[in-house]
Design a binder for these strands. Sequence first.
DNA 1: AGCTTATTTGAGTGATCACTCAAGTGTGAT
DNA 2: ATCACACTTGAGTGATCACTCAAATAAGCT
Lengths: 210, 210
Amino acid sequence: MKRARPYDREAALDAALNLFWTRGYHATSLKDLEAALDMKPGSIYAAFSSKEALYLAALERYFRQNRDSLRTIGEEAGSPLKALADLMRNVARCSNDDPNCRPCMLIKTLVDVTTDDDEIARYSRQYLDEMRGEFVSLFELAKSKGELPPDADPVRLARRYQSELSALKIEAHCAIDREGLFALAEDLAQQVEQLRVSPGKAKKRAKRSS
Amino acid sequence: MKRARPYDREAALDAALNLFWTRGYHATSLKDLEAALDMKPGSIYAAFSSKEALYLAALERYFRQNRDSLRTIGEEAGSPLKALADLMRNVARCSNDDPNCRPCMLIKTLVDVTTDDDEIARYSRQYLDEMRGEFVSLFELAKSKGELPPDADPVRLARRYQSELSALKIEAHCAIDREGLFALAEDLAQQVEQLRVSPGKAKKRAKRSS
DNA sequence: AGCTTATTTGAGTGATCACTCAAGTGTGAT
DNA sequence: ATCACACTTGAGTGATCACTCAAATAAGCT
């Protein structure tokens, strides 16, 4: 038979990620993966060793993309706090096939996997911890910019924020009514924005420190 | 072979619920169910028709138990608001094999199932809606007792509360550090309690309306 | 052009899946 | 005691699972 051209690892991982994110680890079969990656079993196993290894590679890819995206937001945002609030609003605005309408892949993995999937669970937790660290950095940045009171605790705020963002994505996935989702997202976004000290006070404090 | 004594439907459903809740729909095999229910395939199928039908029966049992438990809380609580806050604190206090440390079964189901599992998803959403209705009733009760301002919106508060309770249970399952979980639970519980109007104002308002 | 190596294929492996059904056994009625 | 019916069993069904490997083909080197 005519041999296919060599596979594109990045494209294969994207396809695998999308499939696992949609169907979960246990409900995704090799048959599904063959179709999505356009590779035959021999090739899949040559390239990725096992279904589990492929899942872990996809998970890492998800984590890196999310972390990088968050860092870009952090670098580009005039107001980190507003950026964080807007991330929540974006969840409510998304359409059904938007990744924002899906639960966080790391959370989905932890809810989905069983005690037989220790390695997968361990990596998911580790990536969740690292994502929390990224949120901490964003809250620290907000604090350093005078957007938060000096006694604000970025670690606590980040933990709360990550939990609530995650909940919001799950609500989006569970397809509660659109209006309800908007209301919930707005509540949570405003809660983030209400953390700030008022702009006048922030400017005065900034002037004093320079 | 010697025939087993007839199965106990309630006990079977409890065992099935526990197993599906632990392992999820797709990762639970008939072999697992045989062991957990102490029934052979022929009996399982005679009693429950299919794996999916058994899952749906277990889901309904979960929903009924949760709803009844919430209603009991509503009936017995002097302060519905405090009861709601304490539900959150209980999540942080639980040990690892406590059902409170597991994600809500309805949420887990919706995160876990695929597009091939429409019926399961539909029932889960319906039960989630009904649970939300129960939370609405509790917030309405709190309002009628003067625990909430007259302009408080029980529908919005219930939606927010359900989402956050759900998130908290997922955090408990994901095994973030215990201290972090306590802090998060306390944050959320206090947020609920901060909804109240002050007791003095509540008493005055109660006197005026009688 | 020929050869070696790398990569892909896809039929096939052994195991497991959800589910079936003929046979065996317990129960209740007569 | 006998019989009919209800209920359980567990070997077996057809399908699918994750994964393998001998064979075929493309690519690169000489």
